[in-house]
């Protein structure tokens, strides 16, 4: 359908301004520069607006950082960001407050996260390729079923699912957390990748097929490299969502040695008596670091799409 979108994009302006097509290269260059940078004034304005909004966006993190340096009883009495004392001990105490050093829980989380990422990348992209590019009977039915699987809230699914994993003897292992990802149960990512693959020009795989490529080769050599932004998105989201996922990790992991970061963080908090809020915030900051770093580096791959791979 959109094969005609791109031509439209050129032809529509071209129809009205045919002469520009032959515009001298000098002018084109100038225009490009303008587009990239704009005038100094507007550029400055843009930065000012972005920074102003950025401060609002950053406020929670700054507040958490400040709270992690405050004594427990001050956290709830001070709304501002002024620090009067530096309670570094929140970090040392928080790190050692539970049975294992906090790093232990971060390693556990990392195992679950890496397994989930690999699972989602491999299995979801395969399913997505089939849905987006292949013809098979019952495709629409299966696609609808796939979407339905994300429409039921986890709270009614968890008990039957627990019974299955418990019968299999997999409770208190990472299997119930990782295996579903290896089996593409995260329909969010399948659907995401379907949308991305459908956005890729079909001429590419048709050309490859004429060259004698099978589906496996088209998938691995053409589609996967081209959907880098979708894969990066999947990686980043899987990392963050798994890193923060409290409920299923709480349910499936029983031995404190197996606890992950979100479960460990909640262990600082008791709604009926004193909680170690300072330690909780300190360890929250520590556990945010890997996620933030992953985002910082991962987002570079977000922008490595078809635009930069040089395929035309």
């Amino acid at each position: 359908m959109t094969t005609n979108i791109a031509p439209q994009a050129n032809t529509a302006p071209a129809a009205t301004r045919t002469p520009t097509k032959a515009a001298p290269p000098v002018r084109r260059k100038k225009r490009n520069d303008e587009e990239l940078s704009g005038s100094t004034g507007s550029r400055l304005l843009k930065h000012i607006v972005l920074i102003a909004f950025g401060i609002i966006m950053l406020y929670p993190l700054l507040w958490m950082l400040v709270s992690s340096l405050r004594p427990n009883d001050v956290i709830f009495r001070e709304a501002g960001l002024w620090l009067t004392t530096f309670e570094i001990s929140n970090y040392t105490e928080g790190w050692n407050a539970l049975q294992s050093p906090f790093g232990h829980y971060m390693i556990n989380s990392m195992i679950v996260v890496v397994g989930s990422i690999i699972g989602n990348l491999v299995s979801c992209s395969m399913a997505a390729y089939a849905f987006a590019r292949l013809k098979f009977r019952r495709r629409n039915l299966l696609f609808a079923i796939m979407l339905m699987t994300i429409m039921l809230p986890i709270h009614v699914i968890i008990v039957p699912q627990y019974i299955i994993f418990s019968e299999l003897g997999w409770v208190n292992t990472f299997i119930p957390l990782v295996l579903p990802k290896l089996l593409a149960t995260d329909a969010f990512f399948v659907f995401l990748m379907v949308q991305f693959i459908r956005g890729l020009p079909k001429e590419l795989d048709e050309a490859a097929r004429i060259d004698g490529c099978g589906h496996v080769r088209i998938f691995t050599r053409i589609i996967l490299p081209l959907m880098m932004p979708a894969l990066a998105t999947t990686t980043i989201f899987t990392f963050i969502w798994t890193w923060n996922d409290f409920f299923s990790q709480l349910i499936y992991l029983t031995d404190p040695e197996m606890y992950t970061v979100p479960v460990a963080l909640r262990s600082f908090v008791d709604s009926t008596a004193t909680s170690s809020w300072g330690s909780m915030f300190a360890m929250s900051i520590v556990s945010l670091l890997p996620v933030f770093l992953v985002f910082l580096f991962g987002q570079k791959y977000l922008v490595k799409g078809i635009a930069t791979t040089g395929i035309k």
Partner: peptide, 8 residues
Amino acid sequence: LAGLRQIP
């Protein structure tokens, strides 16, 4: 953002 980057 990822979608924008996919536009040639």
